[in-house]
Each structure stands twice: as C-alpha cells, then as structure tokens.
C-alpha cells in the first residue's frame, strides 16, 4: 500500500485549497486512502497556508521531519517548511516570490533567493525548482500556478496516479471557462519535472 506524507505550503490566495482538492479527488477516484488537513479562516487573508495530505496514514497532520514530499507554491514558504523535512524528502517548489505586505511596508525584508535556493539543492537529495507563476502566465493565467505545481507533483512519479487521472478530476473541479488554461498549466508543470 502507498504510504506517503505530502506537505503543501503557500500563501493565502494562491489556490492551495484547489490544489489539494484536485489531488484528493484523484486519489479518491483511484481508490487511494487519502486524508488531509486544510487551513480555513483568517490565515487565508494573505497569511501562510498549508495543506497536509497523507496517503495510507490516519493522522491528517505532518510533524517535524515527517514529510516525504514538500510542495511549495512560494519559495519563502518552502524554506519555512524545511524543519518538517528529512534529507530524503523530495522538494518541489515554485521560485516566484509573493512579497508580503509587511515587506512592502518596509517592516521586514524578503531574503535573497539565489543563495538560499542553491543551499536548498545542496542540502536535499531531490529538489525540483521552477518559476511556477511564469509558467502559469505562459499557459494563460498566473492564477493557475497551483495547477503548474500539481502538474510537477504528478510528473515526479511519486504517486501511483496517471496524468489522465489528475486531468479528469481537474476538469471536474475547475470552472469550465478556466479548464483550458489550467490544463495547459498542469502540462507545463508536468513537463518541467518529468
């Protein structure tokens, strides 16, 4: 039986809930025992959001050092979640920053990404980094970043789920007029990793 703990992190408004819905529905349709824990409420207003997704485990929550896969929709959030990882955790992350309001107001600084991401590659065995927002924009809308990242997770081959299975639930859950752009975004993510 597949046993996997996937931690997905990002910023409120990036569509992490849809990311996990599509992933979850795909697992359901393919008969994988899936459970997850979502963040609803205040944090969705531009705060840090995460979804814990577990396959084959009962606890819908991932502790320090327990993530098998870390999926980041935003690079600083990926860095923030590293204590939940081990050396062999697979890291899949977009590198396009979302600068917090507090930084825009001059009350905090956003770190320099280049050196941090270089260190990230050095520290972990399998790291996949890509400009998710740029890829989404090329696919038709920067709002489809979540599907780029989902495509990348699908392309990693970590889950026993076919690309078609993901696309089927994507088509079911995304509003009809956005399906095309979202599919393209998914493809872009899939190809960036495969």
């Amino acid at each position: 039986m597949t046993k996997l703990r996937i931690l997905a992190v990002g910023v409120g408004g990036q569509g992490i809930l849809l990311f996990s819905r599509v992933l979850g529905e795909t697992c359901l349709n393919e008969g994988l025992p899936v459970a997850m824990s979502e963040v609803h409420g205040m944090a969705q207003r531009g705060g840090v959001v995460e979804t814990n997704i577990v396959l084959g485990w009962k606890s819908p929550l991932i502790s320090e050092g327990e993530a098998d896969v870390l999926v980041g929709l935003e690079p600083v959030e990926t860095l923030r979640a590293l204590p939940r990882c081990r050396r062999d955790t697979v890291i899949i992350s977009s590198t396009d920053p979302v600068v917090p309001q507090i930084v825009k107001d001059g009350l905090a600084t956003y770190p320099e990404l280049e050196p941090a991401l270089a260190k990230l590659r050095e520290t972990f065995d399998r790291v996949y980094l890509f400009p998710g927002e740029k890829l989404a924009k090329e696919a038709g809308t920067s709002r489809a970043l979540n599907m780029v990242v989902l495509g990348a997770l699908a392309g990693s081959g970590l889950l026993p789920l076919s690309k078609e299975a993901f696309l089927n639930s994507l088509r079911k859950l995304v509003k009809p007029k956005y399906i095309e752009a979202n599919e393209k975004a998914f493809e872009a993510g899939f190809n960036v990793i495969k």
């Binding site: 207003r45 705060g47 923030r80 917090p100 309001q101 905090a108 320099e112």
Partner: peptide
Amino acid sequence: KPERPDLSWVPELPPRPPTLC
C-alpha cells in the same frame, strides 16, 4: 531521531500576518 539536515543556512524569513485585502 531521524537524521535532520543542517538548516542553519536558512535566512531570516519575513512573517506573513494576515492583512486586510
């Protein structure tokens, strides 16, 4: 204890308090 990677290189990260839209 599982082997934890050295994370001392992670820079200081800005907090992300929720904000008014």
